[in-house]
Amino acid sequence: NITNLCPFDEVFNATRFASVYAWNRKRISNCVADYSVLYNFAPFFAFKCYGVSPTKLNDLCFTNVYADSFVIRGNEVSQIAPGQTGNIADYNYKLPDDFTGCVIAWNSNKLDSKVGGNYNYLYRLFRKSNLKPFERDISTEIYQAGNKPCNGVAGFNCYFPLRSYGFRPTYGVGHQPYRVVVLSFELLHAPATVCGPKKST
């Protein structure tokens, strides 16, 4: 009989979020998941679920829940969905086509923008091939755009693969920082350890 609540607040209220190319993952297990707390949290810009209804989450049990978190621009949030393409979905964070879970995003301009620009948040701009679902690539190898080998030196046709967002408070909404948490639900042939409040007695 599990009684402790799942530590969703640790994920959602973290002081610093990860850059999207180096997205953070927390495994959540052996706890009671009260999703209504999240669902009623006012400032969400997006709360979209795939393969599961957000209002039914509290009735369900899962083997594991993974909480992935990172920061992207407002106009990139739409790429955090199954079957998407674009710089983020291709080179930074890719969801599987059969994704079961929820994508939760909110504007973090007050936290993550600075006058003069916040350059701490990076994304991958160049990559030889697209990421596989949930693949994480933190390499900083110089990207070779031409035929000539770069030998690890940036220059003509040789690019550092990461780019900084440089968030400023005055940017338009599409270019403002958004914090994103992706909850993915794993249902294995194993005992369920993460259940909603109704199922955990």
Rank of each mutant, 00 (worst) to 15 (best):
A46Y: 14
A67T: 05
S36D: 13
Y93P: 01
F70T: 01
V173P: 14
Y178D: 02
V65L: 11
A14I: 04
A42R: 12
L57C: 03
P54L: 15
N147V: 12
F45A: 15
K94M: 01
N4H: 11
N120M: 09
W23C: 04
G117W: 05
G74Y: 04
G116A: 11
K199M: 13
P197Q: 15
N58D: 11
F12H: 01
F45G: 15
L57A: 06
T201P: 14
S164T: 12
C150R: 05
K199I: 14
T55N: 15
F47I: 10
S36V: 04
I104M: 09
H175E: 15
V194I: 10
T85R: 14
Y178N: 05
V181G: 00
R73Q: 13
P169Y: 06
Y143G: 08
S129P: 09
G83I: 03
I104T: 01
K94Y: 00
E10W: 03
G146Y: 06
L122Q: 15
K94Q: 03
V173C: 08
Q144W: 05
E141W: 05
V153D: 13
A192C: 10
A105K: 03
D97A: 10
V20L: 02
C61L: 08
N58Y: 06
Q144I: 06
L187P: 09
L38Y: 02
E186F: 00
V173D: 14
Y66P: 02
P82G: 02
G196D: 11
V182L: 01
Q79R: 03
Y171D: 15
A81C: 01
P43M: 04
R25M: 02
R25L: 01
I138V: 15
S139R: 09
S184G: 11
G83V: 04
N64Q: 11
K114H: 12
V11E: 03
S29Y: 07
L183A: 00
K26P: 01
V194C: 10
N109F: 06
Y66A: 04
D9R: 11
V71C: 04
Y143F: 14
F45D: 15
I138Q: 11
S78G: 11
V11Y: 04
A81M: 04
P133W: 02
N40R: 14
D9V: 13
K56P: 03
L111N: 12
N120E: 14
N75D: 15
R136I: 05
A67K: 01
G83D: 05
S164K: 11
Y35F: 15
A89W: 01
G172D: 15
T170N: 13
I142S: 08
E141T: 12
I142Y: 11
P82L: 01
K132L: 10
N58G: 11
I138R: 09
L188D: 15
V71D: 02
S200R: 11
F167H: 04
V180S: 00
C150S: 06
F41S: 10
V115G: 13
A18P: 15
S184I: 08
T100M: 13
I2A: 14
K128S: 13
S78C: 07
L57K: 03
F70R: 01
V182Q: 00
G101S: 00
R179C: 05
N130Q: 13
I142W: 09
A81V: 03
N58W: 06
I2K: 13
D9E: 14
D59Q: 13
V71M: 03
C31I: 04
A81N: 02
E186S: 11
N118R: 07
C31W: 04
R163H: 12
K56F: 06
V173Y: 11
V153S: 15
V11A: 02
T63K: 13
V194E: 11
P149H: 12
I28C: 04
K128M: 08
A154Q: 14
N87H: 14
H175P: 04
A67P: 00
